[in-house]
Each structure stands twice: as C-alpha cells, then as structure tokens.
Amino acid sequence: MSERVAVRKTYKLFIGGKFPRSESGRSYIVQSGGEETANVALASRKDARDAVVAARAAVKGWAGATAYNRGQILYRVAEMLEGRRDQFIALGASADEVDAAIDRWVWYAGWSDKLPQVYGGANPVAGPYFNLSAPEPTGVVAVVAPEAPALLGLVSVIAPAIVTGNTVVVAASPAAPLAAVALAEVLATSDLPGGVVNILTGRLSDTVPTLAAHMDVNAIDLTGVTDADLAAELEVKAAENLKRVLRPAPVGHDWFADPGVTRMTVLLETKTVWHPKGV
C-alpha cells in the first residue's frame, strides 16, 4: 500500500475574519518544519490598507462589547491554543514557549474588567462635582511583531492591545510567518469578531510604512522593528496624525517575564467626566 499523500496547507493573510490571498497575487517560500516548504502571502500596501479598513469597522463592536465579554473571548483563545499545542511545536516553538503563550492569553483575559478599575477611578476634586476617569481604547493599532520567540512574541503584542477594546493590524515577522497564520486560525475559531485582529505576512518594507503613515491608524507598536533607522523613520511618519507610539523592544528583551501593564496602558486614552452635584 502506498504511503498516504499529505494534505498541505495554504498560508494566507487574515483580514476581517477571512483568509484572503494577497491582492497582489504575490507569495514567498518558507520552510514549514521538516522538508516541506510553504508559500506565504506577500502582503502589499493595498492589503495593509484593506486591513486597516477591516480593523476600523470592528472597533465599534469590539470597544463597545462588555469587558466581561472580551475577557471570555480572550480566554476562549487560550482554550483553542491549548488544543493546538502540538501544531505550534511542529512549527518550531518549544513546549515552554507554547505554554507561556497560552498562559499569557489567560493572564490578559483576566485584565479586561480589572484594568479600568486599576487604571481609572474617582478623583477627589475640590468642589461639588462627580469626577470619574476611565480608560478607553485608542482605536486601530498597527503592530510590528517580534521575530522571536515567534508565537509568544506575537501573543505578547496582540493580547494587550485587544483586551481593552482596540483592534489591530499586525505585520508578522517575515522570518516567522507560519506561527502567525496558525495563530490566525486559532483566533478565527475563538468567537473573536472578524477584523479585531488582522495579520499581514510578507516584507515589513511593503506594509509597515503604509501603516505608520495611515491617517486612520491611532497607534503603532514598533516592538518588532530591529533597525533603529527604520524605527525612527516610522516614528516620523506616525507623527503626522500623532499616533501613540510604542518604541522597539530593547535587544535581549525577556518575553517570558511578567509583562506589566505598560503594553496595555500606552494604547489607552483616559476620559474624565465631570458633573455637578446638587439638588
């Protein structure tokens, strides 16, 4: 009996909850564990703009969802990822990394209804006024994912952005696109509304400058940018509409360490509401 012919996977982009090819029709070849090769979509500037449109369309529903609901969905992502441990290990992640990535979803899931309490609150103003500050998502966030660790790095930049109600367009590391597409498959089966996370594979030079200059993007996370000149250039582009900027991660950043809250808070706005007290 002949050996079974394997069904290979097509790796595509993840935009608006769907898996389209690049509109440009381009792809590039990467090793997909073992001997196999995979054709990965080479996203274009147009794909980046389409992803921003999808991310913007998702803001209202996602930012408007209850914190409880967002927390449940992030926890669901952890559940789905747990079920696919072996798949990510086959793609080259260590078991420790996959476990840490799963645990990180759980950690962030719990923040959804706590951050507003920790980061906001009543202000004791000197007058007869009710005064309350609460964080709100800034909107659409462009994210440059770190190259390594591919899965944990990706989760560590996506989860803190979306748990508070932002939507993201992620430029996956060109060297590690398969974990990104596999994660997209996890997200697509986790009750996450389409467009909350959009993932572009391909060259950073094709998509990231477009995202940095895009006037409908509210913030940019440059974590995965390793070239200092490119980071500066992107920050200059981001200034055009005063995007909130998270600068590149320092060399040797420990992705397994406690991430703290900065990755969430830098992508939040604080809104303060006043109202007089009286009868």
Partner: peptide, 11 residues
C-alpha cells in the same frame, strides 16, 4: 452640565 472645570486631581 458644567464647563472649563480644572482640578489637580483630575487628569
């Protein structure tokens, strides 16, 4: 129902 109120405790 107010406007231009400021306070050091209020972001």
């Amino acid at each position: 129902n107010t406007f231009n109120k400021f306070d050091p405790t209020s972001p």
